[in-house]
């Protein structure tokens, strides 16, 4: 399946990121994980840590504090207590 993954990162105050991407890596409470398009439905709590979004050869990193990741066939949603984009690396 060569589709894209719909990813949205939402904080209580605003939607931080929303769009189609290739891959998202995040830090779950039971270990880091990566999500590719077509991932099985999956839900986990998140640790404090970076969320890396890869799209083509572009990479964006967000600092996320507390929250949940929810993977459905429609895409990945991260509900974060606090989220902000880390300084460009």
């Amino acid at each position: 399946m060569a589709g894209k993954l719909h990813f949205s990162l939402v904080a209580p105050e605003r939607e931080v990121f929303s769009g189609e991407v290739d891959q998202v890596d995040a830090a779950g409470v039971e270990g880091d994980f990566g999500v590719l398009p077509g991932h099985a439905p999956f839900m986990t709590a998140l640790r404090e840590g970076p969320v890396t979004v890869r799209d083509g050869n572009r990479t964006r990193v967000f600092e996320v504090k507390g929250g949940f990741a929810d993977v459905t066939p429609q895409g990945l949603t991260i509900l974060a207590e606090q989220a902000s984009e880390a300084a460009a690396s």
């Binding site: 409470v29 439905p41 709590a45």
Partner: peptide
Amino acid sequence: IDLGGAAYEYEP
């Protein structure tokens, strides 16, 4: 959400 028959996995 329609999961298309797949089961949700939870962690924890």
